[in-house]
Design a protein around this nucleic acid. Structure first.
Lengths: 228, 228
DNA sequence: CAATAAAATGAACATGTGTTCACTTTATTG
DNA sequence: CAATAAAGTGAACACATGTTCATTTTATTG
């Protein structure tokens, strides 16, 4: 007579019931544990986001994230397969909101000129409030996976600008030009005159400096697209 | 009676002569060995420059440099105190020449407008010929020491542009503007529309694409400074 | 040649950090 | 409570790479 996993199924009714009990007693996820899981995942994301916002991607390590989220480092891997994936996820999370604001603002306004102007100004104002994060998303060097996201984000911004430029040309508000190249140029202007300098500045700029800077950038952008 | 380094100086004339012979026989550097030293140093620099030109700073390691220069890795440290210093040195070497060309070209031309135009076109043409190196110098992320050099280089380029813009305003060729901000913007335009895209491109662009691209960039720059 | 020291070598060391995994703790179920 | 498995832990491992240093090789000199 044969046994399976130590249970003699045929020879003894008691063994059979034990087997069934074992099967029924299996641990399963409940709503409560699922909620707890999400909570922990959220804590990890929050910790990573906080580190990136204040110190950029260079200041992030699995140990630091785990500590901030009050976890062991190994636990992070129960929620994200690798550091890259965690960073990439957090990058998308952080950039999505800002991109949506830009895209939305690009649709509001009487003329294309005003729409572009407001888009540039709005982005600049928000970037000044979160200089380290803006730099992390726009310009900071990171590993390949995150870098791909960064390239995509810059392209997404460029796409918003390209749409505006195309419309502007149709409306004869802007001169004829290669919309995609001009769009990239606007991203470059903003990155180089605003995001990068802000990330290096030690002190916050005054309100006066801020409006002068934004004014200059906005004028540059308008001239670049040949706005009347 | 005391001995110094095994030589009994006072008790024995033979010991004294031995001491003098030892002193005279000392090995000294000759022209030949000095030349050899320079040769080796140059080999290290060439190897590093080659690696940076083809793979950027990310593709450089002391072992790789040593191998290319046909040396042991430890020997590199006879010539450079650290990897950072080697990279920083090579960075300066590579960027100095191009910066000089830009600075020189910015002085040539009938009008400020033409001078700026030619400067932008010249830089762009050269960047297209060495896309990986241009990217390494202008945009590639590296360690802090090299990063400082990169920031300085971008500022140096911006300074050239700022001088042109200031002159252009004086001549009423360009509109009134913050010269330093516009100058940074020009660097941003070129980096974002030319250097970064080129570094990502898999194939070389055709001559036709090249002239169209440079034309667009040049027009963008001229419009940005409000050139008549 | 002998004495000397500079030059060269490369294995070993140091370091930082992402990742794993054997083990412990906790939650679930009848 | 007993059985189960998911969740959690953190020390150990993996790996890349900059740097050191005891040792060997080479060049120089009378």
């Amino acid at each position: 007579m044969r046994s399976i996993a130590g249970c003699d199924l045929i020879g003894s009714p008691i063994s059979l019931s034990r087997f069934l009990i074992r099967f029924i007693m299996a641990y399963r996820q409940t709503e409560k544990t699922k909620a707890r899981q999400l909570e922990v995942r959220q804590a990890i994301v929050d910790a990573a986001l906080d580190l990136i916002t204040n110190r950029g991607f260079s200041g992030i390590s699995i140990r630091a994230v785990a500590e901030k989220a009050k976890l062991a480092s190994g636990s992070v891997y129960k929620h994200f397969a690798s550091k890259s994936e965690l960073c990439s996820y957090v990058f998308r999370l952080a950039s999505k909101a800002e991109l949506a604001r830009v895209a939305n603002q690009s649709l509001q306004g009487e003329t294309v000129r005003i729409r572009l102007q407001q888009t540039v100004i709005g982005f600049s104002e928000r970037a000044i409030k979160q200089p380290r994060l803006s730099y992390a998303l726009i310009a900071e060097p990171v590993d390949p996976l995150v870098d791909a996201e960064r390239i995509k984000l810059r392209q997404d911004y460029a796409d918003v600008f390209a749409e505006l430029i195309t419309e502007g040309m149709q409306q004869k508000e802007f001169v004829e030009q290669q919309a995609n190249i001009s769009a990239a140029a606007l991203v470059g202007i903003i990155a180089e005159t605003l995001v990068v300098p802000l990330s290096r500045a030690k002190n916050k700029i005054t309100v006066k400096q801020q409006s002068a800077l934004i004014g200059s950038i906005q004028e540059l952008c308008m001239r670049a697209v040949g706005s009347a």
